[in-house]
Design a binder for these strands. Structure first.
Length: 217
DNA sequence: GACCAGGCACATC
DNA sequence: GATGTGCATGGT
């Protein structure tokens, strides 16, 4: 596909979704730290389950890296349990907290001052943080212009003939980076719209009726 | 009761 | 590098 055509296609997809859903204000969360925690908890998990875990953490006043690492493991696991994979995810939360404290004085604001490429390397080196989780944190918690690729992104673009079904994370991300303005607000909203659309439609093959992207391309 | 959900690490070939 | 498997809960 020619670059100009890809730009038009992405623009058309965005316009359709925006018209259908309006502003999504994605990602939900009251603070950058809460967003980072949510990014880890939502790995392969429905958001409704993540919400329960976050409510538990809030009630225990644990949405703070220092309090989190000071909490008995069992208590933390109990809070995290509703989001599934709770033993793994509890470890992953602690790994992230330890990193945040060791490298950024426990402050997401401090973290956000460092260059995005360095932060991405740091995050990917942590056990339990892969590309999507790293980019969730960088875009939504650190306000860095980096596009988040997820299952929905891949599914929607491949179903509309804009990418191969087995395209790599990097190549898919590159499509967005080279065809859109490197704009934090745009990237946030575009991904939010993809999540909304992916949840409501595009689950079953072929394309579903009443999808905002129906008959688009 | 099966199937799915916004992943990731690790083993094996 | 590609492919398979374990990890766990809650909604449909």
């Amino acid at each position: 596909m020619q670059p100009r055509s890809m730009k038009k296609s992405l623009n058309a997809i965005y316009t359709r979704m925006e018209k259908h859903y309006g502003p999504t204000h994605w990602w939900p969360g009251d603070s950058p730290f809460e967003i980072a925690i949510g990014a880890i908890l939502t790995q392969n998990t429905a958001w409704s389950n993540v919400e329960k875990a976050i409510v538990n953490l809030k009630q225990k006043n644990l949405l703070c890296p220092r309090r989190m690492i000071a909490t008995p493991l069992e208590e933390l696991e109990t809070a995290v349990r509703p989001s599934g994979y709770y033993r793994q995810k509890t470890k992953r939360l602690l790994t992230f907290c330890e990193y945040l404290i060791a490298r950024h004085q426990g402050s997401m604001a401090q973290m956000g001052k460092r260059p995005v490429a360095e932060l991405r390397d740091d995050l990917l080196a942590l056990n339990g943080i892969g590309q999507e989780t790293a980019d969730d944190i960088l875009l939504y918690a650190c306000e860095k212009p980096i596009f988040v690729v997820d299952t929905y992104t891949k599914r929607i673009l491949s179903r509309h003939g804009l990418a191969e079904e087995n395209i790599s994370y990097h190549d898919l991300q590159k499509i967005f980076h080279t065809n859109l303005a490197m704009d934090v607000a745009l990237f946030k909203e575009f991904h939010g719209l993809i999540v909304y659309t992916g949840k409501d439609f595009c689950r079953s093959l072929p394309r579903c009726e009443s999808c905002p992207l129906q008959d688009l391309l």
